[in-house]
């Protein structure tokens, strides 16, 4: 039973998730041009927008949208993927007005462009930092979506998959993978991050 507002869209990918493991009820991947229409359908069905955030993955610039419902809870995580050299997404601020700030924040942190955001100026970072995006990763440090959305049993309940969409295809588990996936503990007792600045004063 796919959530009703998503049923009429050709999502690239949609899988049922184990809430106890991932916190979501559904994980989907949207085609870029469908984002506003999907948002409209979700709002009409009474879903609220939790947040929008970026994720700098090897396969491209990912925008992640979290939706939930006040009376029939079940988080829907929807991803959209754009190329690194053109991270352009359609804005949903005309539908979910709260998205205006989330999109501006994502612009600050990742340099994404949300077309038709009504007030697309810096939100949290200063305006003279407009071309510095601190959460963007250097190419060598980018991880694959397959790694970031890994997990045992993940993808076992795929409801929809577009032809040729293989980004979230989990490989069949092998003994070596199991060993790798177990929470390994760092060998070095001292983490390098110790001397990071605290980030200033708290009021």
């Amino acid at each position: 039973m796919i959530p009703a507002p998503l049923a009429s869209f050709d999502l690239l990918y949609l899988a049922r998730e184990d809430h106890a493991r991932t916190g979501s009820a559904w994980l989907g991947v949207m085609a870029l041009q469908d984002i506003p229409a999907i948002a409209k359908a979700l709002l009409a069905a009474g879903y609220h927008l939790e947040d929008i955030s970026g994720l700098d993955a090897a396969e491209g610039a990912v925008a992640a949208y979290h939706f939930d419902h006040f009376t029939t809870p079940g988080r829907i995580t929807l991803l959209a993927l754009a190329p690194h050299d053109a991270p352009v997404f359609p804005s949903i601020a005309a539908i979910y007005q709260g998205a205006e700030w989330h999109e501006r924040e994502t612009r600050d942190f990742f340099g994404y462009v949300f077309t038709d955001n009504p007030n697309f100026i810096p939100l949290l970072l200063p305006d003279d930092m407009a071309d510095i995006h601190p959460l963007k990763k250097p190419e060598a440090a980018r991880a694959s979506l397959l790694t970031l959305f890994a997990g045992e049993g993940r993808g076992s309940e795929v409801q929809r998959k577009a032809e040729g969409f293989t980004l979230l295809d989990q490989p069949a588990p092998t003994a070596a993978d199991d060993a790798k996936a177990a929470p390994a503990e760092a060998k070095q007792p001292e983490a390098k991050a110790d001397d990071q600045p605290d980030g200033g004063k708290d009021a």
Binding site: R21, T22, G23, T147, L148, F149, A150, G151, R154, K180, A181, A182, P183, A184, E185, A186, Q188, P189, E190, A191
Partner: peptide
């Protein structure tokens, strides 16, 4: 300083 396994939550 434990590492988290790959995945998201």
């Amino acid at each position: 300083n434990a590492k988290l396994p790959a995945g998201e939550a």
